[in-house]
C-alpha cells in the first residue's frame, strides 16, 4: 500500500481545489460541483484509513457521504431550476434578493 501520507496529500489537494472553486466561481452549478469535489476528498481519506486499519467501517461512512451528496445534488439542482425559471440566471452574485 502507498503510504497513508500520500492519500492525505491527495485529499487535501482536492479539498483545496474545491474551496478555490467555491470561492472564485460565479456559476452556482459549478459551485455545487466543487462541493462534490470536497466530499470526494473526504471519501478518499475515509477509505484510505479504512484500508490502513483493516476495517470496512470507513467505507460505510463513505457510503453515507455519497448518499448525502445525492440528496444535496437533488435539492441543490432543484433550487437552481426554480431560481432559473424566475430570474433566468445561474450566477451566484445575482442571487441577491430575499424575495421574488
Amino acid at each position: 500500500m502507498v503510504p497513508i501520507g500520500h492519500y492525505i496529500f491527495l485529499s487535501v489537494a482536492l479539498l483545496a481545489i474545491g474551496i478555490v472553486g467555491i470561492v472564485t466561481r460565479r456559476n452556482v452549478i459549478i459551485i455545487l460541483m466543487s462541493i462534490e469535489l470536497i466530499l470526494n476528498a473526504v471519501n478518499i481519506n475515509l477509505v484510505a484509513f479504512s484500508r490502513l486499519v483493516g476495517s470496512v467501517e470507513g467505507q460505510i461512512f463513505a457510503i453515507f457521504i455519497i448518499t448525502d451528496a445525492a440528496a444535496e445534488a437533488a435539492v441543490g439542482l432543484g433550487i437552481i431550476i426554480a431560481f432559473f425559471r424566475n430570474r433566468e440566471t445561474v450566477l451566484a452574485d445575482e442571487m441577491d434578493i430575499l424575495k421574488w
Binding site: 503510504p3 501520507g5 484500508r51 490502513l52
Partner: peptide, 11 residues
C-alpha cells in the same frame, strides 16, 4: 505517516 504498516488486504 510514512511508516505505519497497513493491515493485510484480506481483512
Amino acid at each position: 505517516l510514512y511508516t505505519v504498516p497497513a493491515a493485510p488486504a484480506e481483512s
